[in-house]
Structures are given as structure tokens and as C-alpha cells.
């Protein structure tokens, strides 16, 4: 007895769905028509598809903004507290048979702690200064480059 009822309910739902879909499509079509009309209006006034042009620029700007936000310098510099806690490494180390201590492999910061004390900022990934576009990237740093309007 349950099977037919399900079928009937399915049949009932079918047309309803269909109606919904058609109405949806109708709505969409209407919107599109409306939109086309708007487009026609804007063509006359301020040029076609202005929002689309903006889109790529906006995306580029948003991407750049995100890129800049990613290395939050203040957090990078002041966020991590690298204090030297004397007690910790004496107590928490495992002991083997109550006599030997397990010598943990050097962590990254430990390795850094004993590296060379030098103020020079070495260039890690040098640019290829023979390329025209790389050379152009610093053109305006020189007096021979382009000047700002106010100077």
C-alpha cells in the first residue's frame, strides 16, 4: 500500500517542480531582458559592460591587498617571543637509566642562535640585471628616470 502512495506523491511533486522550474526560467529570462534594457541605457550614457572591466581590476587589487597583508611585519617581529628559559631545558629532558640525558637534535632557533653575527643583508635570489624588464624596474630611482609631477 505504501508504494503507490509514494508514486502518487512523486507524480504530484513532478508537475509542481516543473512549474517551479519554468517560473524560475521565466524569471531569469525577465531579468536578462531587464538587464539588456539596462545595458542599452548604459551604452548610451557611459559605455558598455563597465562593471566587467572593473571586475578584473578589483580582483587584482584584492589579490595585492591580500599579498601585502600576508606578511604582517609587526606580528612577525614582535609576535614571537624568543626568550631563553633556563629551567625548561634542564627539567624536561628525558633521562636514560637515570644517568644519561637524551641529547635532542638542534631545533631551528637553536641553530640560528650560534650562527654568524653579521649585519650584511645578503641577496638570496638575485635578479637577472641583463633583462630589459628587470632593468626597467628601477629606472625611476635615477635622476634620468621619470619625475613626479610636483617636482
Amino acid at each position: 500500500l505504501s508504494k503507490p502512495s509514494q508514486v502518487s506523491s512523486g507524480q504530484k511533486l513532478g508537475p509542481q517542480n516543473f512549474i517551479d522550474e519554468t517560473s524560475d526560467i521565466e524569471n531569469l529570462l525577465k531579468e536578462e531582458e531587464d538587464y539588456k534594457e539596462e545595458n542599452n541605457d548604459s551604452k548610451e550614457t557611459s559605455g558598455a559592460l563597465k562593471w566587467k572591466e572593473d571586475l578584473s581590476r578589483k580582483a587584482a587589487e584584492a589579490f595585492l591587498r591580500q599579498q601585502q597583508a600576508a606578511p604582517n611585519l609587526r606580528k612577525l617581529i614582535y609576535g614571537t617571543v624568543t626568550e631563553d628559559n633556563e629551567e625548561e631545558d634542564d627539567d624536561t629532558r628525558e633521562e636514560l637509566g637515570g644517568l644519561f640525558r637524551v641529547n635532542q637534535p638542534d631545533r631551528e632557533c637553536k641553530h640560528k642562535a650560534d650562527s654568524l653575527d653579521c649585519s650584511r643583508f645578503l641577496v638570496e635570489a638575485p635578479h637577472d640585471w641583463d633583462l630589459e624588464e628587470v632593468m626597467n624596474s628601477i629606472r625611476d630611482c635615477f635622476v634620468t628616470g621619470k619625475w613626479e609631477d610636483d617636482k
Binding site: L73, R74, L76, I77, Y78, T82, C118, S119, R120, F121
Partner: peptide, 23 residues
């Protein structure tokens, strides 16, 4: 760009002089 030496120096300035820079 700040060099690694400078970044460590800024941390030291904070611990010795309690000065934090606006970056």
C-alpha cells in the same frame, strides 16, 4: 625590506628600551 639582523635588533630594542616601532 628589513634584514634578519635588523629584525632581531628590533626585538632587542623592545626588550632593552621597551620601544616598539610602528611598521
Amino acid at each position: 625590506p628589513l634584514s634578519p639582523y635588523t629584525i632581531e635588533f628590533l626585538r632587542h630594542l623592545k626588550s632593552f628600551f621597551q620601544i616598539m616601532f610602528k611598521i
